[in-house]
């Protein structure tokens, strides 16, 4: 039986009917056509599906779509506001903190959630925040640099 749910995503109100066995990630990608969040493992190990719900980073592959009812969701598509990039997006480009880009949306959302709760994170805080986001390309150093720069710690 389908369930009727309502939630806000990237500032827009959405009403949808979803099957119980649909994951939140699948709903976002297939029903809302927001394909920024990716499935890399489906098991909470890679972090490429990370989005922000009610201010907190979560793995959207491990949530049911029905659980989104009443929530406020942000995906990578909601990071830039009115065409102005989020500082993280700027610093990721500037530091070449991405290569293939597949982990990038999840990485950005983990970093965004961190800066939302802690605008002045230590290196350990940053590592904790992205410890669950695997990147096979960059070697991570440039990602740390980009997040530090977005937090205003280096220029």
């Amino acid at each position: 039986m389908k369930h009727e749910i309502s939630f806000t995503i990237n500032g827009e109100k959405v009403h949808l009917e979803v099957e119980p066995n649909k994951t939140l990630l699948k709903m976002i990608r297939e029903d809302l056509n927001l394909t920024g969040a990716k499935e890399g493992c489906g098991a909470g190990e890679c972090g490429s599906c990370t989005i922000i719900i009610d201010g907190k980073a979560v793995n959207s592959c491990m949530m049911l779509a029905v659980e989104a009812d009443g929530k406020d969701i942000m995906t990578v598509e909601g990071l830039a506001k009115s065409g102005v990039l989020d500082p993280l997006q700027d610093t990721f480009i500037k530091n070449a903190a991405l290569q293939c880009g597949y982990c990038t949306p999840g990485m950005l959302m983990s970093a965004k959630a961190l800066l939302m709760r802690n605008p002045n994170p230590s290196e350990d805080d940053i590592k904790e925040a992205i410890g669950g986001n695997l990147c096979r390309c960059t070697g991570y150093k440039v990602i740390l640099d980009a997040i530090k720069e977005a937090a205003g710690q280096i220029n």
């Binding site: 909470g44 980073a57 979560v58 793995n59 949530m63 983990s110 904790e128 669950g132 986001n133």
Partner: peptide, 9 residues
């Protein structure tokens, strides 16, 4: 336990 985002759930 797991990652930061996992621990949020």
């Amino acid at each position: 336990v797991g990652s930061y985002q996992l621990r949020n759930r």
